[in-house]
């Protein structure tokens, strides 16, 4: 009798646990995906609104341009995502992007071949990122201040290298901007392909490598990450190097887009990149977010611009107001999510 009861109990006990587990995993999906899902909903809504209001809005040409015209911002936002995931911020990306365009333009004018100028421009970005990483990690200067100093530094170097706009005629850079027709209005440029490649590499790095997990771990809690024996120092410096490198690469894509190197390029682009990352569902406190979300964020920003261009009667400043409003909505939504999770 007693043993019977025990066996019944023993048999029964795991049952509620099991159903509980099933219940918990069944409803919808992981909460971590909710902010990104919000971005997808906004993107789809904007596509529907645009498609219903204007002819040719949903054409291959417009959609392809969305990717092509924002390829440099995608690359920059991807780099920014790494930094923000660790709980830092990088204000220098716009200036580093400009520096990269200036360096490549200057080297082309002075007769350097593309295979020297292009790596040099990217390397300059990586170097500035490395300097920022050292300031942040070794000298414990706050990321905000360190990247601010780097922003002034990069902008200052731009003015020294290229006080006036330098046209770029190098065939390699020009080739980056040539459209390959894919039929039906769809097209892609080598810069678009590079941007997509950067996204794929970043995605794999963040989700399938030890380095990527360390990035998330530092954002979740630097002290805990250190106690777990993760290479915090190396990773923290490296995320700024990645962001700088991405900004350098973004500069080359921008050079292909604008065919010139100019010291005032990309003023305020760091804000666009941060806005894209936030709209893409990454928390600025670090530790939570996805690189694909940032890409969606860039596309949302691009779509706002496209819709305002299509509308025609709306003045350009509405772009800023709409981006601000969208930012507000997303920030409040994220906040509500965090509160509900607790």
């Amino acid at each position: 009798m007693a043993t019977d009861e025990m066996t019944v109990k023993a048999r029964k006990q795991p049952e509620p646990k099991l159903t509980g587990a099933v219940h918990r995993s069944r409803p919808t999906l992981d909460r971590r995906y909710l902010p990104v899902l919000g971005t997808v909903v906004v993107l789809v809504l904007m596509l529907i609104i645009g498609g219903s209001r204007y002819d040719n809005f949903l054409s291959g040409r417009v959609m392809a341009n969305l990717l092509i015209n924002n390829s440099f911002l995608i690359v920059v936002a991807v780099g920014m995502t790494f930094v923000i995931l660790t709980g830092g911020i990088d204000l220098s990306v716009g200036a580093v992007l400009a520096l990269s365009t200036c360096i490549s333009a200057w080297m082309f004018v002075h007769g350097w071949p593309a295979y020297v100028a292009i790596p040099a421009a990217i390397l300059a970005g990586a170097l500035i990122g490395w300097a920022v990483g050292v300031m942040v990690h070794v000298f414990e200067i706050q990321p905000f201040i360190a990247t601010l100093a780097a922003m002034f530094l990069a902008r200052g170097l731009c003015y020294v290298i290229a006080p006036e706009s330098i046209p770029i005629t190098d065939p390699t850079i020009v080739k980056l901007g040539t459209r390959w027709d894919l039929g039906g209005g769809w097209a892609i440029t080598p810069s678009g392909v590079i941007a997509l490649a950067v996204v794929v590499v970043a995605f794999v790095t963040l989700h399938y490598t030890r380095f990527g997990r360390t990035v998330y771990a530092i954002g979740g809690g630097e002290q805990s990450a250190r106690l777990m024996g993760l290479p915090v120092a190396r990773t923290k410096v490296l995320v700024y190097v990645i962001s700088g490198t991405c900004a350098g690469l973004g500069g080359l894509l921008f050079a292909a887009f604008s065919s010139s190197g100019y010291s005032l390029t990309g003023v305020g682009m760091e804000l666009d990149a941060i806005a894209a990352v936030v709209i893409g569902g990454t928390l600025l406190t670090g530790g939570s977010g996805f690189v694909l979300g940032s890409v969606l964020g860039v596309l949302v920003l691009g779509l706002i611009q496209t819709i305002i261009t299509f509308e025609g009667t709306l003045s350009s400043w509405w772009t800023k107001i709409v981006i601000g409003a969208l930012l507000l909505v997303f920030v409040i939504l994220q906040r509500l999510l965090v509160v509900r999770r607790r």
């Binding site: 941060i274 806005a275 406190t285 800023k320 409003a325």
Partner: peptide, 15 residues
């Protein structure tokens, strides 16, 4: 977070 809360007006304010 203050940095993101004030980013809203920073972006929209000039508009």
């Amino acid at each position: 977070q203050p940095i993101i809360a004030t980013l809203v007006i920073m972006t929209a304010g000039r508009g």
